[in-house]
């Protein structure tokens, strides 16, 4: 089993501040039942001073999730909200004398729940930007989502580049096969296009290359193409909106059912292929987190 520190074990066996909190004026529910860890953090904040007078938690989760929740409540009690918001997930892990790499997400969950609870107290809307996938690099606790996003955003092509950007694969090297799989999954279509262009050379027929578009034409064409695609997504209760164009990177926001959908990568891949075809150039379609709307 896990090599938990004595402190983690102690906080698991004797959790502090567990159970519902009477008179709570800020509550944050965060986590994923699918992943088996979720917590409700309840705060009682003094409205005059913004000091957290009391904090309690209820957690559905493993030993380290319960210990992280317990530690979090101990850390933030007596702090002002602004002080509490400066608590990082590493602070929670440090308080517990460290967590195994596979369990660092428990401390992240605690921090996110804190942000949600503070937002709830302040009457603000809060949207987390945290997502995690299968743990790939056990030396540095890096998961698939982190690697995929970084590979996409920086057009990484080699294991060395992935290690330089994310640290993943920079330790024992046992995860290199998985990193290669991610590189191929993200870049596959692009690799194939670069090596073997699907458009045959046009010299023999004498037809000219696709004319270069002006910036305005290019943006219009991207918009038109997305408009063609949207009805398909809307039929599945999803949608896509163009957010920004930066060179060959096209940023879109997926919403509705598309957001967080397991098929998101496939959807983006499809949009990317369509755009590459109509523009006659290689583009990358990148998702951005849904915007917080005022």
């Amino acid at each position: 089993m896990w090599d938990y520190s004595d402190k983690v074990r102690e906080h698991f066996f004797n959790p502090r501040n567990s159970g519902p909190l009477d008179g709570a004026n800020g509550t944050g529910d965060f986590g994923s039942i699918k992943c088996g860890d979720a917590l409700r953090l309840m705060l009682r904040v003094n409205p005059e001073t913004e000091v957290i007078d009391d904090a309690r938690f209820q957690t559905f989760g493993c030993g380290s999730a319960i210990a992280s929740s317990s530690a979090l409540t101990e850390i933030i009690k007596g702090k002002t909200l602004d002080e509490a918001l400066r608590v990082s997930n590493q602070d929670i892990a440090d308080y517990l004398d460290g967590l195994p790499p596979e369990k660092m997400h428990c401390s992240v969950m605690g921090r996110e729940a804190l942000q949600a609870a503070v937002a709830d107290y302040r009457g603000e809307s809060w949207k987390d930007d945290h997502e995690e996938g299968e743990l790939i690099c056990k030396c540095f606790a890096i998961d698939t989502v982190m690697i995929e996003d970084t590979v996409r955003a920086n057009s990484l092509r080699t294991i060395e580049e992935v290690a330089n950007y994310t640290k993943a694969g920079g330790g024992c090297s046992a995860c290199h096969e998985k990193i290669e799989d991610i590189l191929i999954a993200v870049n596959g279509r692009l690799y194939a296009r670069e090596v073997k262009p699907t458009r045959a050379p046009v010299a023999s027929s004498g037809t000219p290359d696709m004319p270069k578009l002006t910036n305005y034409q290019r943006i219009r064409r991207i918009e038109e193409t997305l408009e063609e695609i949207r009805p398909l997504l809307q039929r599945e209760h999803g949608d896509v909106t163009l957010v920004e164009i930066d060179g060959r990177n096209i940023y879109v926001e997926l919403s509705g059912a598309c957001q967080g959908c397991a098929m998101q990568a496939a959807t983006l891949g499809g949009v990317q292929q369509k755009l590459s075809e109509t523009l006659g150039e290689l583009v990358q379609v990148l998702p951005i987190a849904p915007l917080v709307r005022a």
């Binding site: 529910d29 965060f30 986590g31 949207k127 987390d128 967080g260």
Partner: peptide
């Protein structure tokens, strides 16, 4: 209805 009473946020 526990699944409605506790519905944590998750990306």
């Amino acid at each position: 209805r526990p699944e409605e009473a506790f519905r944590p946020d998750y990306a």
